[in-house]
Design a protein around this nucleic acid. Sequence first.
DNA 1: CATGTGTATGAATAAAAATTCAATTTTATG
DNA 2: CATAAAATTGAATTTTTATTCATACACATG
Lengths: 161, 161
Amino acid sequence: MNAKQERQQKILELISDQSIARQEELSAALKDVGISTTQSTLSKDIKELGVVKVPDGDGGFRYRAPGAFVGADQRPLQGENLLQRELQDFVVSVEAVAQTLVLKTITGHAQGVCEAIDRAEWEEVAGTLAGENTIFILCRSPEACQNLEKRVWIQKTSSTN
Amino acid sequence: MNAKQERQQKILELISDQSIARQEELSAALKDVGISTTQSTLSKDIKELGVVKVPDGDGGFRYRAPGAFVGADQRPLQGENLLQRELQDFVVSVEAVAQTLVLKTITGHAQGVCEAIDRAEWEEVAGTLAGENTIFILCRSPEACQNLEKRVWIQKTSSTN
DNA sequence: CATGTGTATGAATAAAAATTCAATTTTATG
DNA sequence: CATAAAATTGAATTTTTATTCATACACATG
C-alpha cells in the first residue's frame, strides 16, 4: 500500500519541474500522470513533506521542496535555474549603493555570476562589470536599484531543487 | 514614508524571535510593539519580503524569514560540497588526453571551477590552467590522468544532499 | 473469520491568506 | 503651492489551504 509514497514522490518531482502555485493545480498535474486525489489530501502531503509555498519574486507563488531531493538532473544548469543557483551558491552579499548594486561573490565566480545576470536581461540594468569577486551593476535609477536589490535577495534566498 | 520599512523590519524580527503561525497572530504581535496594521497589509508584506510559512515538523506551521529554511542551506558553499556543486553544475565535459585532463564548463566559470579544483589539492595534479570555458589539468602520469577522469566523473554525477 | 487498531482518504467546512477596489497618503513636477 | 502620478493601506471579498469527521481499508490477533 504505497499509493501515498508514490504520490508524494511524484509531488516532489512535479513541483521541481513545473511552476505550481496552487494545490488544485498540483491535483490537475497529478491527474495528468494518472494519480487522482483531492486538495484535502494534497494539503496533508504537502505538510508532511515540508513543501512550502514561496513568493517567486515576480508577483506569484510557487511550491518548493526545501530538503534533499535525489534523482534530479545532473546536467549543467541553464536559464532561470542557473541564475538562481548562481545567486544562492556564490553570492556573499548584496548592497545597493546609490544606483549601483554591489554583489560580492566567493572568489573566482564574479565573472560567471555576472554572465548569468547579463543573460537575464533585467530592464533596470544599464550595465555590469565583474572582477574576481565583485560585481557592479549600474541601474537606471536608484529606485530600480532598490527594487533589484530586493529581487536578487529573494531569488537568492528562495529555495531551489 | 518608512512606516512600511519599519514594519517589515519588525516583521522579520518578530518571526525569528517568536513562533508565529498566522498573519493575525503577527498582527497582534505587531500591535504589542506599537505597530497596528491589518492582515491584508501583512499578506502583502510577507510576499514582498519573501517570508514563507513552513510546516514546523510538529503538526503546526511557522513563518520563517527567507534564508532560514530547514533543509535548504542558503549560504555560499564551501570545501568538498563546493567542488561537487561546481562539477555538477558547470562542467560540460570531461576528457583525458594523454596526461592532461580537459574539462569544459559553461562560459565564464572555468576560473571558478578551477579554483575549487586547486583547493582540493589532488596529488595526481601537477598544475592547472583555466580560460573562459576550458580547464587543462596536467597530471603526473597518464594513469593518474585516467584515474582522475573517473574520479571527477563520479563526483560530478553523484547527487548531493 | 470476526474484531480491534491504526492509517489513509475525501467531502464538507472552517480557517487563513491573497486580491480587489476605493480611499488616502506620499512623492514628483510644473 | 497645486496638482498629477504613484504608492500604501484596509474593508470587503474571493481564493486557497487546513482541519474535521465519517468512512474505508489494511493488517494483526484471538
